[in-house]
Simulated assay, not measured.
Amino acid sequence: MSYSHLLLALSVVFVWGTNFVVIRWGLDGLPPFLFATLRFAFSALPWLLFIRRPAVPWQKLAAFGMLLGVGQFALLFLAMRADISPGLASLVIQVQVFFTIGLSLLTLGERVRGYQLAGLALAVAGLAVIATHLDATLTVKGLALVLAAAFFWACANMVVKTVGRVDMLGFMVWTSLFAVPPLFALSWWLEGPQAMASGVMHASVGVWACVLWQAIGNTLFGYGVWNWLLARHPAATITPMALLVPVFGMGASALSLGEPLPLWKLAAGALVLCGLVVIVVWPRLRTALLRTNA
């Protein structure tokens, strides 16, 4: 992976990590399914009026929109309403890395290399440190919902791997359209039209800013760039970068929401970073060593 692609990946995980605080702010003013509906509505409109539909079959556009919108974010928003803190949510959702690599092995025949396994082992050690310090801020319901959201994110990654190199901004705009109807139906059914109307009418400027950031910063930029990278690199190279999300997520939550950041969290973050260094730097180091010895 080139350094320019590495910087793109890092910018995405920074946006995604800090976004968990933004989600928490948004949920203070909107019910979860309505929040998700508005997020994807603004990801689709008005942009699809100006951006051409990519050369992707309709069923794949629909599948990705459903998996990302309903499968991942509806469940994540529901969990973050009261059952998991932003910092912990940013950690647990990263199980998608292992789901994605496993699905790639099963469906695409990709091969995981030894240095990637070593890097993943270090990162898993960091996640394990955090897991041993869970407290009342994480319920069983919250854990189950976020794990399910992680699985659906991995399934969405598999759809991306099958579409090849297409206009990923257009892909995100047009797939977002398919997320809106089922999310709206879920909000109408489970939250009720009265709560939906009240949420929209009484949402503050800050809450609407959270919705727009979800749509433009997190969805169009974040997933557009992420999917563009997935189409050009093996899943085992790209998806481990998302392990940085909890580092940014817990840091942003500590600074913005006062979530504690004790020494064990810093140690866990260091392990995750070391794992990423192994995955990203080792191929370049090995190539340099081979050239030197030659």
Score class of each variant (00 low, 15 high):
Leu271Asp: 08
Val56Phe: 00
Thr287Ile: 14
His202Leu: 13
Met241Arg: 02
Ser90Gln: 05
Val247Asn: 01
Arg113Pro: 14
Gln116Arg: 09
Asn19Trp: 05
Ala179His: 07
Gly275Asn: 11
Arg81Lys: 15
Cys274Arg: 06
Thr287Cys: 15
Val129Glu: 04
Leu147Ile: 14
Leu243Val: 05
Arg24Phe: 00
Pro260His: 00
Asp167Met: 02
Val200Ile: 14
Pro193Met: 13
Phe184Gly: 09
Gly258Val: 01
His202Ala: 14
Ala121Leu: 12
Leu289Ala: 13
Trp213Phe: 14
Gly109Ile: 07
Pro54Gly: 01
Leu255Ala: 11
Val112Ser: 09
Val278Met: 07
Phe152His: 06
Gly217Pro: 05
Val159Ile: 11
Val173Leu: 02
Val146Phe: 09
Leu68Cys: 06
Leu30Pro: 12
Glu191Phe: 02
Gln94Asp: 01
Trp47Lys: 13
Ile216Phe: 03
Gly224Pro: 00
Ala136Val: 12
Trp189Cys: 07
Gly164Tyr: 07
Ala242Asn: 05
Leu230Trp: 00
Val112Asp: 09
His233Tyr: 09
Ala268Ser: 07
Tyr115Trp: 11
Leu145Thr: 05
Trp189Asn: 06
Trp208Leu: 06
Thr132Asp: 12
Ala154Ser: 12
Ala252Tyr: 04
Leu45Trp: 14
Gly119Ile: 07
Ala118Asp: 05
Gly87Cys: 01
Pro240Glu: 04
Leu230Pro: 01
Pro46Ser: 04
Phe99Gly: 03
Gly164Gln: 06
Leu117Tyr: 15
Phe42Tyr: 02
His5Ile: 12
Thr219Lys: 02
Thr137Ala: 13
Gly164Leu: 04
Arg52Gln: 07
Leu177Asp: 10
Thr239Gln: 07
Gln214Asp: 08
Ile84Gln: 05
Leu103Met: 10
Ile130Ala: 10
Gly114Asn: 10
Leu76Trp: 00
Phe151Gln: 06
Leu122Val: 08
Ala209Trp: 08
Leu75Asp: 11
Thr239Asn: 05
Ala268Asp: 03
Ser11His: 08
Val13Ala: 08
Gln72Pro: 10
Pro181His: 03
Gln96Met: 08
Val205Leu: 13
Val211Arg: 03
Ile238Ser: 04
Val180Gln: 10
Val112Ala: 11
Met172Trp: 02
Val12Asp: 03
Ala254Pro: 01
Thr292Lys: 15
Pro54Ser: 02
Arg53His: 04
Ala150Ile: 02
Leu290Arg: 15
Arg53Glu: 07
Thr139Gln: 06
Tyr3Thr: 15
Gln214Thr: 01
Glu191Ala: 04
Met66Gly: 14
Ala197Val: 14
Phe33Trp: 13
Trp228Arg: 00
Leu220Pro: 02
Leu229Val: 00
Ala203Tyr: 03
Val173Met: 04
Ser253Gln: 00
Pro181Gln: 07
Val13Phe: 01
Val225Met: 02
Ala148Cys: 15
Trp189Tyr: 13
Ala41Glu: 05
Val146His: 06
Ala235His: 00
Ala294Ser: 15
Trp174Val: 04
Ala144Cys: 10
Ala267Arg: 11
Ala267Leu: 13
Leu68Lys: 10
Ala267Asp: 08
Asp83Pro: 05
Phe184Thr: 12
Leu78Ile: 10
